[in-house]
Design a protein around this nucleic acid. Structure first.
Length: 425
RNA sequence: GGAGAGGUGGCCGAGUGGUUGAAGGCGCACGCUUGGAAAGCGUGUGUAGGCUUAUACCCUACCGAGGGUUCGAAUCCCUCCCUCUCCGCCA
């Protein structure tokens, strides 16, 4: 959520920054300011009257104590109450309008986020490693996985439907090894504390991180309870500190969380229908940070490096992309995607998305910090990034480590997690 | 699911209709004291909104959330949420 004061004081700048995301993004601003003005007027009216009421009530108390007649001020307060109720109703309703409008306005893009209409205008920042060369035609992960008995997509469709997978035997073990490897790396080497949170969350949590109210159609919702399945661990982990004031000296706070993630994928019909690239249910290790505002962009660079370290240890070729304004997520100010090389598609595919949300989520979720020496609490900046998406990493390992005979070589760092095994199939 | 207890400031804990943002204690900050420290003494110590150049002053609100009664509610009434204990059920 943007700061209403910022909109009041620098409306022009906010307007321009928002419209970098696309024409019309800031359409509501003038109307918003008008409502806000009315809201403050109503509030002032109500507060003035309440002040009067307080004085009169005290007078009633005093008069009664002395045994004198208090019916005059009592009657006066009764009439004040009618007016107060009117102004309060008005100001509450206007306040609600301001809030609901603000909740639907996205974050301002960073200065360092490139302008662009869609993903084709994302900026490649760097590449790491090199494309593997094959002296045979590399197979895709579906063919590899099904031939080797690692994946069973047909039965998954029978059990649940499209966009679900069964990982089987060595495939299940590999997925588990990847998760374990990622968690260990992030907690032991990169200094994150592990959290294992609920995957069902309430509406407030989804408001806090920005999935609601605008993107309900992307979420699985329970029918009989006001709960949603999380689309990412960002939701429970960021909301872990909702409505809290963190001690300044505890920052930066860094968490790594493995969870299942659930997405309806409405609106992506026909995309990635083959295989396990795009699933309704997938596994992910997520990294979340709470930091001081002045450090958040440095922390974003470190976060990306932490996510990259997984791909580097597994020696997988990838590139880092700075998302342009047209591709930038709703709550983010700046996002780097990590895209891993997939030989079968002869292209890079997103395997991690690392974002700085500045104070946008913190203001929605009221996550602040305060120094020891007093002073006002200030909003933290929140960041998060996949470290990494396990299903897609599974795909990358299969495709990049496939051998001419159809077997899969197991990357050295994973062998420890697979009882020393060196290949699959 | 059944029965009961409870939700007050960073923490503990008073407070059952009157000026209480809230006693007392702990913690914390600053000062005095000291060779230094402890103890002791003193002062201060919530959040949001409005107003504002201002994190100053002032005003309003907040004692789990929402509604109600009343001139006046942390205190009374209603609804909901959460926590704890016992029983049942269960991975």
């Amino acid at each position: 959520m943007l700061d209403i004061k910022l909109i009041r004081e620098q409306g022009e700048t906010v307007h321009n920054q928002l419209n970098r995301r696309g024409p019309g993004t800031s359409a509501d601003l003038d109307r918003l300011l008008e409502i806000d003005k009315q809201r403050r007027d109503a509030l002032n009216q109500s507060q003035t009257l309440k002040n009067k009421k307080k004085t009169l009530s005290a007078e009633v108390g005093n008069l009664k104590k002395k045994g004198q007649d208090a019916s005059g001020p009592m009657e006066e307060v009764k009439q004040l109450n009618v007016q107060i109720k009117e102004w309060d109703d008005k100001s509450n309703s206007l306040d609600e309008q301001v809030r609901s409008t603000l909740l639907k306005i996205p974050n301002l893009p960073s200065e360092t986020t490139p302008d662009g209409a869609d993903e084709s205008q994302n900026q490649e920042v760097r590449q790491w490693g090199g494309k593997p060369s094959f002296d045979f035609k590399p197979k895709n992960h579906v063919e590899l996985g099904e031939t080797l008995g690692l994946l069973d997509l047909k039965r998954a469709a029978k059990i649940s439907g499209a966009r679900f997978a069964v990982f089987k035997g060595q495939g299940a073990a590999l997925l588990r090894a990847l998760i374990q490897f990622m968690l260990n790396t992030q907690t032991r080497d990169n200094g994150y504390e592990e959290l294992y949170p609920p995957v069902l969350v309430n509406e407030d949590s989804l408001m806090g991180t920005g999935q609601l109210p605008k993107f309900e159609e992307d979420l699985f919702k329970l029918r009989d309870d006001e709960l949603f399945l999380i689309p990412t661990a960002e939701v429970p982990v960021t909301n872990y500190h909702r409505d809290e004031i963190l001690p300044e000296e505890s920052l930066p706070v860094k968490y790594a969380a493995y969870t299942l993630c659930f997405r309806r994928e409405a609106g992506s019909y026909g995309k990635d229908t083959q295989g396990i690239i795009r699933q309704h249910q997938f596994d992910k290790v997520e990294l979340v940070k709470f930091v001081k505002p002045e450090h958040s962009y440095d922390e974003l660079e470190k976060l990306v490096a932490d996510a990259e370290s997984i791909l580097q240890k597994l020696n997988l070729h990838y590139r880092v992309v700075n998302l342009c304004t047209g591709d930038l997520g709703f709550s983010a100010a700046k996002t780097y995607d990590l895209e891993v090389w997939l030989p079968s598609q002869n292209t890079y595919r997103e395997i991690s998305s690392c974002s700085n949300f500045t104070d946008y989520q913190a203001r929605r979720a009221m996550i602040r910090y305060k120094g020891k020496d007093g002073g006002k609490p200030e909003l933290v900046h929140t960041l998060n990034g996949s470290g990494l998406a396990a299903g897609r990493l599974f795909v990358a390992v299969l495709e990049n480590y496939q051998q001419a005979d159809g077997s899969i070589q197991i990357p050295e760092p994973l062998q420890l997690y697979l009882n020393g095994q060196t290949q699959l199939g």
